[in-house]
């Protein structure tokens, strides 16, 4: 058993981490750090954990040494605290945006502030098992990507890495309200969100930079908030290189994801769920990917769907932990989702 700490445990991602880690057979969750609720019961904030734990939230100063620290903090907070957590934990798995971008100048452009721990940027391994599995086996610093970025990367990576598409692509992302976090605000009032399809980032979404980094192409993203609590669906529009046909696209996806435990190819001809649909992935760690090709126009459309709090956050972080520890990759992550829901 290893001893783990969740920092920022009162948020949605923190709550999902606790849910997964408390049920994980190789993990003892020893502390749930919250600056807002120290001393309060965890299941008061995360009622789905009633009877699963008697943990109380604690302050960061109360945490002693542990094996692994998960940082589910607000953006910019993790890099300010990173030295503290590196000193206390053998592995740090960061779920903020602070170490996702490899270039501090790109960070400043997308996050609007200077990076304050530039000396550590290169030390973090991107937490994308499908791209960096071998590096993750020995990584002590892991940066888990953003939810929309994860979907966007998995949607196009098989084509981009094989040079089957032109080096620019557009990503149309839809996301549920939990992606905005657990902090109340006027933009998240039910009266504002309900029924809305709000284009909140027509250009310049932060995850755009992550997608460009991992795919090696110029990605442009538009993000829309939709009527859902959980879920991300990213639709990618790209142009196929000359002579690339449907068969080559299909082969690229199959070869790339054949042995991936959490990526499923969904491009079906029948049924109500022919293409990736986040609704049926709620609570699961799967990312479903699909594609369609207009051969005459040379146009490729790929689709990826996931639960933003799972494969887009906490679930993916636990998958990275499993890889780092040499455990079965699916340990503690076997929930298949619900239908109907």
């Amino acid at each position: 058993m290893i001893r783990v700490v969740v920092v920022g445990a009162a948020g949605y991602i923190g709550g999902e981490l606790l849910r997964l880690l408390i049920g994980h057979p190789e993990v003892e969750t020893v502390a749930a750090v919250s600056s807002r609720f120290p001393g309060r019961r965890v299941d008061g904030v995360h009622p789905n954990l009633r009877s699963a734990t008697d943990l109380l939230f604690c302050s960061a100063d109360d945490v002693e040494e542990c094996d692994t620290a998960f940082l589910a903090l607000p953006h910019r907070t993790a890099m300010a605290q990173i030295d503290r957590w590196i000193a206390r934990a053998k592995q740090v798995i960061d779920l903020t945006g602070d170490f996702r971008l490899g270039d501090p100048e790109v960070y400043r452009r997308y996050y609007g502030s200077e990076h304050v721990a530039t000396h550590l940027i290169d030390a973090f391994v991107p937490g994308i098992p499908e791209l960096h599995r071998e590096s993750l086996r020995s990584a002590d610093l892991i940066s888990v990507p953003g939810c929309v970025a994860m979907a966007g990367v998995l949607a196009l990576y098989p084509l981009a890495v094989r040079g089957l598409v032109e080096p620019t692509a557009q990503f149309d992302a839809r996301t549920g309200s939990s992606g905005s976090g657990a902090t109340a605000g006027a933009a998240n009032l039910h009266s504002v969100r309900s029924g809305a399809m709000r284009v909140f980032a027509p250009t310049g979404h932060r995850h755009e930079a992550e997608i460009s980094r991992h795919l090696g192409i110029a990605a442009a993203m538009t993000a829309t908030g939709v009527e859902a609590v959980r879920g991300v669906q990213t639709i990618c529009h790209a142009t196929l290189r000359p002579d690339v046909d449907t068969s080559a696209v299909r082969r690229a996806f199959r070869e790339q994801y054949r042995n991936e435990p959490f990526v499923r190819l969904v491009a079906h001809q029948r049924g109500n769920f022919r293409y990736p649909e986040p609704k049926i992935l709620v609570g699961s760690n799967f990312c479903d990917v699909g594609y369609a090709v207009d051969e005459e126009a040379g146009r490729l459309v790929t689709i990826a769907a996931l639960d933003n709090l799972m494969k887009g956050g906490a679930g993916n972080a636990v998958q990275c932990l499993n890889i780092r520890m040499g455990w079965p990759e699916t340990l503690g992550l076997s929930f298949p989702g619900l239908h109907p829901i």
Binding site: A267, Q269, R274
Partner: peptide, 27 residues
Amino acid sequence: PKCEDQVQISQPARLNEIVECAGCHCE
């Protein structure tokens, strides 16, 4: 013929029998 995945057919097969592809779920 749609997705080039492998399709298993139980023998003896019958003419006009419908089978489903596990890869793309087409009939």
